[in-house]
């Protein structure tokens, strides 16, 4: 029990150290937050433009879609804030042999490699997302809303974060095999790009359905945002219950798979330059 309890304490220390580090360059920190918000504003602007020409996209009207975007922002800010800097560092650790240092520590290696650095500035978007969500919810017709959705929404956001984390960490772990994985970020961007749209748009032809199937069941990035967003914007539609159930299964399977991939990759780690 004592062993297990030290992980929250360690996480707290990691978070504190990262914050101290970020606060050393305060102006830079502020600019990063602002530019993150800037990107999101541009993205939002794009959809406001699109919705000026159409009333809805595959059944999502403007404010429902704002909920979707807010969900995207919640999940992305958490993933980028907590895991992105670590995943990027992992390939660097493999290349330089710094991974030895992490392996020698008397704690779980995956835990350490996943959470050592926290990028606080990415969490700025989290608050903007909250404002956007509140604004969008005010404009939604809330008949059929159910109190339980407000508990399920954060839960499914957490599921989404964990699925994305698993994908990212698996990708990062492949750098142990490949020696170097510079295009990790590119790859990541192109895969998650599929997740940032309502899954209904992938349809109408064979390519659409196969994309939808692959990104739901093989690399489950499509459910990451779709399930929580739907839970909040159009809750409790019976035809989507199976998807919400599947999301839980997918989260567990992704986590287990990423751990397995990481362990396998570690076995073939040959320390470099030390």
């Amino acid at each position: 029990m004592h062993n297990f309890l030290r992980y929250p304490r360690l996480f707290y220390t990691f978070a504190r150290n990262s914050l101290i580090r970020d606060m050393t360059f305060r102006a830079n920190f502020l600019i990063e937050i602002l530019s993150n918000i800037g990107w999101m504003a541009m993205n939002l602007g794009f959809y406001i433009l699109v919705f000026s020409y159409t009333k809805s996209i595959e059944g999502w009207d403007q404010y429902e879609f704002f909920v979707f975007i807010a969900t995207t922002m919640f999940i992305n800010s958490l993933v980028q804030g907590l895991f992105m800097p670590n995943a990027q560092e992992l390939s660097e650790l493999v290349r330089t042999g710094g991974l030895d240092y992490a392996l020698l520590k008397p704690i779980d290696t995956q835990f350490m490699l996943s959470l050592r650095r926290i990028n606080w500035s990415s969490l700025g978007n989290f608050f903007v997302a909250g404002i956007l969500l509140a604004y969008a919810l005010q404009h939604l017709d809330q008949t059929g809303f159910h109190p339980v959705q407000y508990f399920l929404y954060p839960f499914y956001i957490l599921c989404g974060v964990l699925i994305l984390y698993s994908v990212m960490f698996s990708l990062a772990a492949t750098s142990i095999w490949l020696g170097r994985n510079q295009s990790l970020y590119d790859f990541w961007f192109y895969i998650t790009n599929f997740s940032r749209y309502p899954m209904e748009i992938y349809g109408g032809n064979a390519l659409g359905s196969s994309l939808r199937t692959i990104f739901t069941f093989v690399i489950p990035v499509l459910i990451v945002i779709n399930v929580p967003a739907r839970m909040m914007a159009m809750p409790m539609k019976p035809e989507y219950n199976y998807l919400a159930t599947f999301a839980i299964v997918a989260t567990v399977v992704s986590l287990v798979a990423s751990r397995w991939i990481f362990k396998r990759a570690l076995e073939s780690y040959r320390s470099a330059s030390s």
């Binding site: 159409t54 009333k55 790009n193 940032r196 749209y197 209904e200 748009i201 349809g203 109408g204």
Partner: peptide
């Protein structure tokens, strides 16, 4: 790859 998503997105937009 993002072009593929754009094709689907704009197909939906024009349909709606």
């Amino acid at each position: 790859l993002p072009i593929i998503t754009q094709i689907f997105l704009w197909t939906s937009v024009y349909a709606a």
